[in-house]
Simulated scan of single mutants.
Amino acid sequence: MSVDSRAHDADSPKEASESVVSMAFGWPFLDPTTMETQGGTTQGSKVTLAGEPSEAWEKIRQPDLSKQERDRMAVLAMAGSFRVSFQFIESMGFAEDYKPSRPYFSWATEHVRVLADTPTFVSLQHTLVMYFEDEEMGGPMVMKHWRQDWTYEDRELVVYRGHLVWEKMKLAEEEASGGWSQAVFQVDDSPRYEAFGRWEHEAGFSRWTSNDAWRPLPRREFSVRDDYNVLGGTQAITITPTGWVHFQDNCKLQVDSKTNSPRSVACEIGINRYERILEPTIQKPADAYWAKTGDYWKEVRGAWKDIFRTRDRFQLKNQADGKKLYEEHFGYAAEIEATDSYDKENGRTHAQETVNRFLENL
């Protein structure tokens, strides 16, 4: 879900529109009209930002925490209700006739809930919850979004290799010592990518920086780009007193299907800002959605755990029987939500059979 960049809590539509044009930093000699942002068009409702440091931030700053525990507090600080902005701009290209693509900008309101929390593992589920300025649309619109799992001293990662293939990568004990992996999953709980990095804590922020990792083509470019098929790069997640920032330094790669060798097409910078909000209240609609569908999504996660446990390498089909994987899962979850009825055994069978139906035989 993405909404129009003009819908800001502090800016008028004209002021916000003008700021979008000037946002195209790094290309000062191009016609500004060629660098106007692409992205969402629906106008979300106004938000009230939190002005004071959060309780989660204060927990990170507690004295006498072990390094591992302070790291875990930083991961947990990503939970809550946020206005999220997504910004991407290409910084360079490698073709002779290269012209930068239009920058991307959208925003949404999102609730991040804690699915699991132990000293060595934290799972965070993102849920889009949107209210709209358009009275006919109103809201809230609630939709399951992506998930991130954090594991301390993780020695077995499931990494992306291109062409919808993932495989296990093992780290030596000394490589994993003191670090955390971040595994990111699509809206349908299928894997997206996994990276490894370490947290650092300073007086004004806490930051996790990753190694280089490959990812599938992002959804924001699925329908507009066919000149690259892998997004590779490093990330930094920085916790601030009133939210967090996800910075990406990416390279767009065309990976050969036979040799698996990459060719660089362009590079981009991405900045996603998660700013804590007080209004609108979005946790209650998110909680209501998960109260109805959470048991089914738990079975979907369980089906994927079985795949990770039993397969060192696997490939996903782009579609099966004319449908995408997310369509199958979201359709089943919508039926549960509409009827307010869930059969655990049927849900488990559907989750397992659906996941397995989308696996290629390698």
Rank of each mutant, 00 (worst) to 15 (best):
residue 3 V to S: 14
residue 6 R to M: 12
residue 13 P to H: 09
residue 20 V to F: 11
residue 22 S to I: 07
residue 25 F to D: 09
residue 26 G to I: 06
residue 30 L to R: 08
residue 35 M to F: 01
residue 37 T to L: 11
residue 43 Q to R: 13
residue 45 S to T: 05
residue 46 K to R: 07
residue 47 V to Q: 06
residue 47 V to H: 01
residue 49 L to Y: 09
residue 55 E to C: 04
residue 57 W to P: 05
residue 63 P to Q: 07
residue 64 D to E: 13
residue 68 Q to C: 05
residue 77 A to M: 09
residue 79 A to P: 00
residue 79 A to F: 00
residue 81 S to V: 08
residue 83 R to E: 06
residue 84 V to T: 12
residue 85 S to Q: 13
residue 88 F to D: 13
residue 89 I to Q: 12
residue 91 S to P: 03
residue 93 G to Y: 03
residue 99 K to C: 03
residue 100 P to S: 04
residue 104 Y to E: 02
residue 106 S to A: 11
residue 109 T to R: 08
residue 109 T to W: 01
residue 113 R to I: 13
residue 121 F to D: 04
residue 122 V to I: 04
residue 123 S to C: 04
residue 124 L to H: 09
residue 124 L to S: 07
residue 125 Q to T: 04
residue 125 Q to P: 04
residue 128 L to D: 08
residue 129 V to L: 04
residue 136 E to F: 02
residue 136 E to V: 09
residue 143 M to K: 05
residue 144 K to D: 09
residue 147 R to P: 07
residue 148 Q to N: 11
residue 148 Q to D: 13
residue 149 D to H: 07
residue 150 W to P: 13
residue 151 T to F: 10
residue 154 D to P: 03
residue 161 R to C: 05
residue 163 H to A: 12
residue 173 E to S: 14
residue 179 G to D: 00
residue 187 V to C: 13
residue 188 D to Q: 06
residue 189 D to N: 15
residue 192 R to H: 09
residue 193 Y to I: 10
residue 194 E to N: 04
residue 196 F to I: 03
residue 196 F to G: 04
residue 200 E to F: 07
residue 207 R to Q: 15
residue 208 W to C: 12
residue 209 T to G: 06
residue 212 D to H: 14
residue 217 L to E: 07
residue 219 R to G: 13
residue 219 R to Y: 10
residue 220 R to Q: 06
residue 224 V to H: 08
residue 224 V to P: 01
residue 225 R to T: 02
residue 226 D to E: 07
residue 232 G to W: 06
residue 233 G to D: 04
residue 233 G to W: 02
residue 242 T to P: 06
residue 248 Q to M: 10
residue 249 D to F: 09
residue 250 N to T: 04
residue 253 L to G: 01
residue 253 L to V: 03
residue 257 S to I: 15
residue 257 S to L: 12
residue 261 S to F: 09
residue 262 P to W: 00
residue 264 S to K: 11
residue 265 V to I: 13
residue 267 C to N: 14
residue 268 E to Q: 15
residue 275 E to F: 02
residue 285 P to R: 11
residue 291 A to K: 14
residue 291 A to R: 12
residue 293 T to D: 10
residue 301 R to F: 08
residue 301 R to G: 15
residue 302 G to K: 06
residue 312 D to W: 03
residue 313 R to D: 00
residue 318 N to Y: 02
residue 319 Q to L: 12
residue 321 D to N: 15
residue 322 G to C: 11
residue 322 G to Y: 05
residue 322 G to P: 07
residue 322 G to R: 08
residue 325 L to H: 11
residue 328 E to P: 00
residue 329 H to A: 02
residue 334 A to R: 07
residue 341 S to A: 13
residue 350 H to N: 15
residue 351 A to V: 06
residue 352 Q to W: 03
residue 353 E to A: 14
residue 358 F to Y: 10
